[in-house]
């Protein structure tokens, strides 16, 4: 649980409670015994940079990589995939210079998923 501490229903004042993600091992089990969240980056072709394509749950990096292949590249060969524990990402806010965001409040956020996938990305 990360982003919601500030703005989840019931959080009320929109305060800046520290995320409990920050106190959790990066790839340790999430609450409810579930698997942690991973962000997936794919290089669709040689010569192109890795781009964020989405996220998934997996118990560890090895399976995260396999799951990423199955979910985000399906049958394509030759692509390069990175998986990163979502909890290991430190983020700024989209409008971080805005006055109502305190720069010191930057913390792990969950995942701005589904960024655009570059042209020629697998199966899109």
């Amino acid at each position: 649980m990360s982003d919601h501490a500030r703005t989840l229903p019931g959080a009320g004042d929109g305060g800046r409670t520290p995320s409990d993600d920050t106190s959790r091992p990066a790839n340790g089990p999430a609450r409810h015994g579930g698997w942690p969240l991973w962000e997936v980056f794919v290089r669709p072709r040689r010569g192109l940079a890795h781009h964020h394509v989405g996220s998934l749950h997996a118990p560890d990096a090895e399976l995260a990589l396999r799951n990423a292949r199955d979910l985000y590249t399906r049958r394509q060969e030759g692509v390069s995939i990175w998986v990163v524990p979502a909890a290991a990402i430190t983020a700024s806010s989209p409008d971080e210079k805005d006055a109502f965001f305190d720069p010191a409040a930057d913390k792990v956020y969950r995942h701005p998923t589904f960024y655009e996938v570059p042209e020629g990305a697998p199966h899109l």
Partner: peptide, 8 residues
């Protein structure tokens, strides 16, 4: 995730 892997 495993549903997808087994289907593959």
């Amino acid at each position: 995730e495993e549903d997808i892997a087994l289907a593959n």
